[in-house]
Each structure stands twice: as C-alpha cells, then as structure tokens.
C-alpha cells in the first residue's frame, strides 16, 4: 500500500487510540481543526472529544498535564504543534518528565509521548524553522525519535507508547508529502538503520536530512564514490554500534545535522567516532550542519542556510583530496 508520510502518522495515531483505551491525544487544534498539518484529521469523529482533546494555547500546562495523566494511569500523546513552541513547556519536559524517575529513586515511570513538527525548508522564517532535536538529545531521562521514512512515521508512535519512558517524537513537515510503501517490518526506537549500502564513505543523518543524504549518495555514485547512508532514527539513546560498524567498513564519515554546528548533535557523533574508531579512519570526520544564523524567510537564503545535497557531496569529496 502506497501512502504519504502524513497518512502514515495518522494511521499510527489511529491504531494507538484503537489499541489501548488509556491512550488519548491532547494538543492545540488536534480535534475539530484536524491538526495543524492535518495529521489527526478524522480522529475526533472516530474517538470523540475526550480522547482527541483540543487544548488551549497553554503548552506549559498541557504538557505538564500530560505528565500528570501518565503518572495517573493514562497513556497520553501530547502534541506540541511545533518544536518552536516546545520552548514554552521546556521546564516540564526537562525538570519533571526527564528526571522524575531517577530523582524519586525509581518509583515512577512517565509513559508519555510528546509529538512535534520540526525543521525548516518551508519559508516560515526564524521563529518557525528551528530544529532542536539535538538539544533534546542532550537530556538523560527522555528518548528522542526522528522518523524519516514511511514505516517509521507509522510505527515509531506505537514503539514510543510501549516504551514506558517519556519519548519525544519529531515529525518532519518537509517530508509529509513523500510517499512510499508501508511494510510489515517491526519498528523499534532503539536502533539506527543503514538506508543505503556503500563502501567508501558513511553519511550519518536523521530526519529530513536522510533524503538529502540519499540524494547526495546518488550523485556521488555517478562520480564513482559509493556512499553508505545511516539513518540514526533515534537520537537518544544513540545507536553508535550501527554507526561505528559502518564507519569501520568505509573508513570515512560525514555527519549531516539539521541543527546548528556549535555544541550540536553532529559534534557528539563525531566525538564518539573519534573516541571509538579513530584508528579505523582514513580521513578526519566531516560535517554538514545548519549555518549559524536564524533561518531567513527569502527562499534562496533559507536554502543557503540549510544542509543540502550539494554541500554533502562537497564535504565527501573533501575527504578524498
């Protein structure tokens, strides 16, 4: 069955709501409006306003309420419309959801899923184009899922709900119209995946940079460089085994990160490769990141600020000079 990324997300939500009556969806415009990105369209009619619950523009309170409801025996899916607005409930995410279990001596689990759209590329300017997955991946106690494929868009929500920990699922509007076959493959939130086999360089990417990395790999292949593409899928905990296995094979790596360079996730991955596979490398690890600017509105400037296939190609070629 060929479906879009958006439909895959919706199918995942519908299945989660149908499977377990403790599950409910809560957020701004998730019900009557049908979801800002039409992801939850139709779910209100199917599951009713108690379980597809429109919330006021009170991200701090309804994310905190999601934590309380999870502790109180429910399995909430809280939608924060976009990552940009997730800075408002950051306190509840960091100071409660992430630390409650450890700080209480292991007494409480917080089985909460927080979904949010992330990333740039749609000319929405600086306040609507952030990519904070890497920030969130800094925090122990939460897990970070970044679905880049149809199967992951469909299956990661169920895996997140089954996990029993607070999980942030980042969805990519830039990918919402992409289509693909839905497979019967079991989806976890524990492992990275090789999306394209290659021999000479490893491209490490996640989320909306995965298609860019694949595009770059196609172009590199035309020039005789066979690139392997690793989709991290889960940004915390990081599956370094898969990354390192690939790097040890190809002996070169380029990390592609939609976040800013300084103190970012790319730096963490490069550091771990250096710590664990330094002597397997034939060249220093390189990276392609978001330029260190707020994302501008004008299309040409926005494109220049983001990781693109040609920048990845250039970075790879740099490793062979």
């Amino acid at each position: 069955m060929k479906i879009t990324y958006r439909e895959a997300l919706r199918l995942g939500l519908r299945e989660a709501l149908a499977r377990d009556e403790r599950v409910f969806l809560m957020g701004e415009d998730v019900g009557r409006y049908g979801g800002t990105y039409a992801v939850s369209k139709g779910l209100l009619a199917e599951f009713g306003p108690e379980r597809v619950r429109d919330a006021p523009l009170s991200e701090l309170a309804f994310v905190g309420a999601g934590i309380g409801a999870a502790l109180g025996g429910m399995r909430p899916i809280v939608e924060v419309m976009t990552v940009n607005f997730s800075l408002l409930p950051l306190d509840q995410i960091v100071n409660t959801a992430a630390i409650l279990r450890h700080m209480s001596g292991g007494q409480f689990a917080v089985p909460l899923v927080i979904r949010m759209a992330t990333g740039a590329g749609r000319q929405l300017a600086a306040q609507h184009s952030h990519s904070f997955e890497g920030w969130y991946a800094h925090i122990p106690g939460i897990k970070i899922a970044a679905p880049a494929t149809i199967d992951d868009a469909h299956g990661m929500l169920g895996a997140a709900l089954a996990d029993g920990n607070p999980v942030l699922v980042f969805e990519y509007p830039a990918l919402f119209e992409t289509t693909g076959e839905l497979s019967a493959e079991a989806i976890d939130i524990a492992h990275a995946k090789v999306r394209r086999q290659g021999t000479r360089v490893t491209l490490v990417a996640y989320g909306n940079c995965v298609p860019k990395a694949l595009q770059a790999a196609d172009r590199l292949a035309e020039e005789g460089i066979n690139a392997e593409v690793v989709d991290l899928r889960v940004l915390r905990p990081l599956d370094m085994d898969t990354v390192l296995a690939s790097v040890r094979k190809t002996r070169r790596a380029v990390v592609v990160d939609d976040g800013w360079r300084s103190g970012g996730l790319s730096a963490e991955i490069m550091a771990r490769v250096m710590e664990q596979a330094f002597y397997d490398l034939d060249a220093p690890v390189a990276r392609v990141c978001r330029e260190e600017v707020p994302i501008p509105y004008a299309r040409h400037l926005e494109e220049a600020a983001l990781p693109q296939a040609d920048k990845i190609v250039a970075a790879v070629k740099g490793l062979f000079q």
């Binding site: 701090l60 309170a61 309804f62 994310v63 905190g64 309420a65 999601g66 934590i67 309380g68 409801a69 999870a70 502790l71 109180g72 025996g73 429910m74 909430p76 306190d91 509840q92 100071n95 409660t96 409650l100 700080m103 209480s104 001596g105 007494q107 409480f108």
Partner: peptide, 28 residues
C-alpha cells in the same frame, strides 16, 4: 516522593506542580 501514599513531591520549580496536578485530575 512516595508512590504508595500518592505523594508526588517535592517540586523545587515554583509553580511546577500545578500542571502536574491538572494531569492527575484529568486522569482521575
């Protein structure tokens, strides 16, 4: 904290407990 007696902290962020209480109320 004490799960057995339903004592949920113990919150050192001023106002941090209020959203949590709303969630407990919602679950109930």
């Amino acid at each position: 904290f004490d799960a057995a007696t339903r004592f949920y902290g113990g919150n050192a962020i001023v106002g941090g407990g209020l959203p949590l209480a709303v969630g407990f109320g919602l679950a109930a």
